Amino acid sequence: MRKRQLGQSDLYVSEIGLGCMSLGTEEKHALSLIDKAIDLGINYFDTADLYDVGKNEELVGKAIKHRRNDIILATKVGNRWREDQSGWDWDPSKAYIKEAVKKSLQRLQTDFIDLYQLHGGTIEDNIDETIEAFEELKQEGIIRYYGISSIRPNVIKEYLDKSSIVSIMMQYSLLDRRPEEWFSIIKDKGVSVIARGPLAKGLLTDKPLNQKLKGKGYLSYTNEELKAFLIKLENIDPSHSMTELALQYCLYQDVIGAVIPGASKIQQLIENVEAGSSERLSAQMYDKLQQIAKPGQYEQHR
């Protein structure tokens, strides 16, 4: 598995990571997926305290505790579950972050987190206070580096200007090219993008077309536009599967530190790793893919 440096950190992550949200809560199954991912060369695992009310962190912690030093472990903070677990509220305060990290460490059965990410963010937040919390956690050795998980341009700009983030997690795929507008700015700051949702909820996999089209479209694509796009994608390059095209499209830009598709089955995991390890796209093929996919940009939070 090829690796990339995350920002200007000393974290070298597998190009294909595992988004752990899709592991489920059945322990044997979840542990088998993580074991298989490690066997396949994945060293980067992304979870969050929000997922399954902390259960996801517990499963990840159990799976990696005997090989912790071989793993780049990422988790997230900022969404505070209510006591009755009826939902959660946004809380990026310093007090909450420093309280929440202790609970994450316990669930993950570790004494440090490689990458601690703010799980959202608004321009109304006290961003200076949030940054201060992460910087103190770095100084205390509790976290090695920090990043944000946000698609809001105004929030991203604030953290690029004010903080020492090494990564920004953004939804990014051939069907959601909105982040590309910011790639040059992010790269100039020495920060990496972590691409979540690179397979666009399975639309960019090799499943049959009739299983993917449910009459709802996707983001700015109507169902008719989506169908036309997928038919073009199926026929654009016989040397690559659709999953390969999707993941290699994301990996083409060196500002991308890793792509993190989820996988709820072993076979999906294998297909993702094989696709991520496949032949790189030529510049000509990359341009062809850009010609058939809408560029797009974020209209809100600018």
Rank of each mutant, 00 (worst) to 15 (best):
V193D: 03
S220A: 06
S220D: 13
L175D: 00
N223T: 15
Y221Q: 02
L174Y: 00
L209W: 00
S173I: 00
F229A: 06
S173F: 11
S192Y: 02
L199M: 07
E181F: 10
R177D: 10
L230K: 01
K187C: 05
L204A: 11
N210Y: 15
T222R: 01
Y146S: 01
A195C: 12
P153S: 12
G190Q: 11
V191E: 02
E224F: 11
S184D: 06
P153L: 15
V193L: 12
L199G: 01
G202T: 04
D206H: 11
D176G: 10
M169T: 13
T222W: 08
M169I: 15
K232F: 08
K216D: 14
V193P: 04
S220V: 11
S163D: 04
R177A: 07
P198M: 05
E225R: 06
L233I: 09
A195W: 02
S149A: 12
P153F: 09
K232I: 10
E158L: 14
I231Y: 10
N154S: 13
K162F: 09
I194V: 14
D176K: 06
S220L: 03
L213W: 09
I165F: 04
V193R: 03
K227M: 08
K201E: 12
E234Q: 14
I156T: 03
R152A: 01
L213K: 07
L160M: 03
S163P: 03
D206L: 00
S167Q: 06
S164F: 11
K232P: 05
Y146M: 06
S167M: 10
K187Q: 13
V166G: 06
M169L: 13
P208R: 13
F183C: 06
S192F: 00
F229D: 07
R178A: 15
D176L: 07
Y159W: 07
K212Y: 03
D176W: 02
S149Y: 08
L230W: 03
Y172S: 00
S150H: 14
K227E: 08
L160H: 09
S149T: 12
T222D: 00
S149P: 09
K232H: 11
S163F: 05
K232A: 13
I185Y: 12
F183W: 01
L233P: 06
G202F: 05
L160N: 00
I185R: 10
I165A: 10
T222Q: 02
L160E: 00
V191G: 06
I231P: 08
S173T: 03
S150G: 14
N154T: 14
K216V: 13
N154R: 12
I186V: 12
F229P: 02
S150N: 14
R152W: 01
Y218I: 01
G197R: 07
A200L: 05
D206P: 04
G217A: 14
